Computed example of a mutant assay.
Amino acid sequence: MSKLSHYDDAGQAHMVDVSAKSQTRREAIAEAFVELSAQTLEALPQNPKGNPLEVARFAGIQAAKQTSTLIPMCHPLPLSYVDIATEIEPEGIRVRATAATVAGTGVEMEAMTAASIAALTIYDMTKALDKGIRIRHVQLIAKSGGKSGEWHRE
């Protein structure tokens, strides 16, 4: 196993120098799952606060653009694309965030942040109807580009 890249030889946290890395197209896809009760799922279209899924989409896009201000060693990136898709399933809502850039480092953190904040926004918009909401399985699904190339969760 290689060492953690965000620490120097003295064990101090630092931002990784990516200036020598190639500027290539990089993309990452992350997911989160918001577990909701059947009653809350049924009430989504009539939610008095508005459409939680549309608000969550905007929040996820905004969050991706703010990742470097939230994660201390994360590089600010010129994002080329961010999208949030939601799918209603029998037990809740699957949130899928996609982020892309042409840069010297990947966009996994942007996709993970977008999925997390979109899921939290769904929680915020529906908590009046359900106190037992759970957010689970925040995870990277796939990434491409850069030195490490393609990766897909099995």
Score class of each variant (00 low, 15 high):
residue 47 N to I: 03
residue 86 T to D: 02
residue 74 C to L: 05
residue 84 I to T: 02
residue 88 I to H: 03
residue 3 K to C: 03
residue 71 I to P: 05
residue 110 E to M: 10
residue 63 A to L: 09
residue 83 D to F: 00
residue 104 G to Y: 00
residue 56 A to K: 06
residue 9 D to P: 00
residue 65 K to C: 03
residue 77 L to H: 01
residue 93 I to E: 05
residue 59 A to I: 08
residue 110 E to P: 10
residue 89 E to P: 10
residue 17 D to Q: 04
residue 50 G to N: 09
residue 59 A to Y: 08
residue 95 V to T: 07
residue 21 K to R: 04
residue 27 E to S: 15
residue 13 A to D: 00
residue 81 Y to D: 12
residue 65 K to E: 06
residue 89 E to M: 15
residue 11 G to E: 12
residue 14 H to P: 06
residue 110 E to N: 11
residue 103 A to N: 12
residue 23 Q to M: 14
residue 24 T to V: 14
residue 34 V to R: 05
residue 30 A to C: 09
residue 31 E to V: 08
residue 99 A to C: 15
residue 80 S to Y: 00
residue 31 E to S: 15
residue 39 Q to H: 14
residue 102 V to E: 15
residue 17 D to W: 07
residue 17 D to N: 13
residue 115 A to H: 10
residue 104 G to N: 14
residue 51 N to L: 07
residue 22 S to P: 10
residue 23 Q to T: 13
residue 112 M to R: 00
residue 3 K to W: 12
residue 57 R to N: 07
residue 43 A to P: 01
residue 5 S to G: 10
residue 101 T to Q: 05
residue 67 T to I: 09
residue 70 L to S: 04
residue 53 L to V: 09
residue 62 Q to W: 13
residue 3 K to G: 11
residue 57 R to M: 04
residue 71 I to N: 04
residue 44 L to E: 01
residue 73 M to H: 09
residue 53 L to F: 09
residue 100 A to F: 05
residue 49 K to W: 13
residue 113 T to V: 13
residue 20 A to D: 14
residue 38 A to P: 11
residue 7 Y to P: 01
residue 91 E to V: 08
residue 98 T to V: 14
residue 30 A to D: 08
residue 15 M to A: 07
residue 4 L to Q: 09
residue 25 R to P: 09
residue 83 D to K: 11
residue 112 M to A: 03
residue 26 R to P: 10
residue 44 L to D: 00
residue 19 S to A: 12
residue 56 A to G: 05
residue 50 G to F: 10
residue 32 A to D: 05
residue 43 A to S: 14
residue 55 V to R: 04
residue 82 V to R: 05
residue 11 G to T: 12
residue 75 H to T: 05
residue 99 A to V: 14
residue 42 E to R: 14
residue 108 E to A: 07
residue 56 A to Y: 06
residue 94 R to I: 09
residue 18 V to T: 10
residue 6 H to W: 00
residue 12 Q to I: 02
residue 55 V to M: 07
residue 64 A to D: 10
residue 103 A to T: 04
residue 46 Q to D: 15
residue 26 R to N: 11
residue 106 G to Y: 07
residue 89 E to D: 13
residue 76 P to W: 03
residue 30 A to N: 08
residue 67 T to C: 11
residue 86 T to Y: 02
residue 104 G to D: 01
residue 38 A to Q: 15
residue 73 M to S: 04
residue 6 H to F: 11
residue 47 N to F: 04
residue 78 P to V: 12
residue 17 D to G: 04
residue 9 D to T: 12
residue 41 L to A: 12
residue 15 M to S: 06
residue 115 A to G: 11
residue 84 I to E: 00
residue 71 I to Q: 05
residue 10 A to C: 02
residue 84 I to A: 00
residue 48 P to H: 07
residue 53 L to A: 07
residue 94 R to G: 06
residue 77 L to A: 01
residue 72 P to F: 10
residue 56 A to I: 09
residue 90 P to W: 13
residue 27 E to P: 01
residue 92 G to C: 10
residue 42 E to P: 01
residue 76 P to L: 06
residue 25 R to L: 13
residue 117 I to S: 02
residue 51 N to R: 08
residue 117 I to T: 11
residue 24 T to C: 02
residue 20 A to N: 12
residue 38 A to S: 14
residue 102 V to F: 05
residue 109 M to T: 06
residue 77 L to D: 01
residue 101 T to H: 06
residue 66 Q to I: 02
residue 45 P to K: 04
residue 112 M to Q: 05
residue 106 G to R: 04
residue 67 T to L: 03
